[in-house]
C-alpha cells in the first residue's frame, strides 16, 4: 500500500456514559491493510469503540485518528456493517435499493439518479456476497444470513478504505457464516478490516491480529490467545475447545485451570 499512515491510531481513549466508563485508557494502532478482530465480553466496549472510530460517539478523553484524520464523515471513506438485530427489516425497500444507498456519496443530492456505474457496482457487490438473485426482493423477505450479507454488500458498494463490522456472524446460519468469513478474508487483501465479534475461535483462525477489550485493552497482537489473556478478558479461564479449527487458538493450559472458577 502506498500510504504508510496507520489506518487507525488511538491514544489514551476514554469514553464515559454519564459517570460509567465504557472504555478507559485504550491505545491501539492498526496498520494499513490489517485484518483485526476485536473480542471481549458483553459490555466490554466493543461497539462503543466502533462508534468512536465512525465518529458517532465523541470520546470523553484521548484522540482517535483514521488515516491521520479525525473520525466523522468529512474524513476517509469508511464502510460500516451494523448488527442486523438493530435494523428495522420491515422498511419498504428492496435488496438492490439498499446496496444502491451505499453509492449515494456525500452531501444532499437534489434530483439524484443512480448512474449505470452505480447499478453495476451494486450488482457486483451483491454477486460478491452471493445474493445477486435476491436483488429484487423486499428486505422483509430475506433470511438473517441473507440480510447480513446484504449489509456487507452495501458497505462494499461505498468502496471504503476501512471496513468496520459489528458482530457480522452473531445471528446467521452456519453456511452464511462460512461465506462471510471467506469473503472478509478476500476483502482484507484490498482494504483494512476491523471485525467485532463474540466468535473467538473462528475469528482467531481468520484475522491477522487480535485485540481484546474489557473496558481496557487487555491484549493486542498476534491471534494467539493464552489462558492469562482470557482470564483477564473474561474474569475467569474460558474453556476453549479447538475441535475443527485450523490451528489451536489457545496455548497449553499451565497449572491452575478452571477448577476454582465459579463461572
Amino acid at each position: 500500500m502506498e500510504n504508510s499512515l496507520p489506518a487507525l491510531k488511538i491514544e489514551n481513549l476514554s469514553v464515559y456514559y454519564e459517570s460509567t466508563p465504557a472504555l478507559e485508557g485504550v491505545s491501539l494502532e492498526v496498520a494499513d491493510g490489517d485484518y483485526l478482530g476485536i473480542i471481549g465480553p458483553n459490555g466490554g466496549g466493543k461497539t462503543t469503540l466502533l462508534k468512536v472510530i465512525l465518529g458517532l460517539i465523541h470520546p470523553t478523553a484521548g484522540s482517535v485518528l483514521v488515516y491521520g484524520k479525525s473520525p466523522g464523515h468529512a474524513g476517509v471513506k469508511i464502510g460500516y456493517v451494523p448488527q442486523i438485530a438493530q435494523m428495522d427489516r420491515r422498511f419498504p425497500i428492496t435488496a438492490f435499493e439498499v446496496v444502491l444507498t451505499g453509492r449515494l456519496g456525500r452531501g444532499p443530492k437534489p434530483l439524484h439518479r443512480y448512474t449505470k456505474a452505480d447499478r453495476e457496482a451494486a450488482t457486483q457487490a451483491l454477486e460478491r456476497v452471493g445474493i445477486a438473485e435476491l436483488a429484487a426482493r423486499p428486505i422483509s423477505a430475506l433470511s438473517g444470513g441473507e440480510f447480513q450479507r446484504l449489509l456487507i454488500a452495501r458497505a462494499m458498494a461505498a468502496e471504503p478504505r476501512l471496513l468496520l463490522l459489528d458482530e457480522p456472524t452473531a445471528s446467521v446460519d452456519a453456511a452464511s457464516r462460512e461465506r462471510i468469513y471467506s469473503l472478509l478474508g478476500e476483502l482484507s487483501r484490498s482494504m483494512t478490516v476491523i471485525l467485532v465479534t463474540h466468535d473467538i475461535l473462528a475469528v482467531s483462525s481468520q484475522v491477522r491480529s487480535i485485540a481484546c477489550l474489557s473496558g481496557r485493552l487487555v491484549y493486542h497482537g498476534e491471534p494467539k490467545l493464552d489462558a492469562n489473556t482470557m482470564n483477564a478478558l473474561y474474569g475467569c479461564p474460558v474453556e476453549l475447545i479447538a475441535h475443527g479449527v485450523p490451528h489451536r487458538v489457545l496455548g497449553e493450559h499451565h497449572g491452575e485451570g478452571g477448577a476454582d472458577c465459579q463461572c
Binding site: G55, K77, P82, D88, E97, V98, T101, L104, R106
Partner: peptide, 15 residues
C-alpha cells in the same frame, strides 16, 4: 430513502 432506512449509515457515507 437512505436516511429513512438507516440514518447511521447515511451519516457515515456523508449525508
Amino acid at each position: 430513502k437512505a436516511y429513512l432506512f438507516d440514518d447511521e449509515f447515511a451519516w457515515i457515507i456523508g449525508q
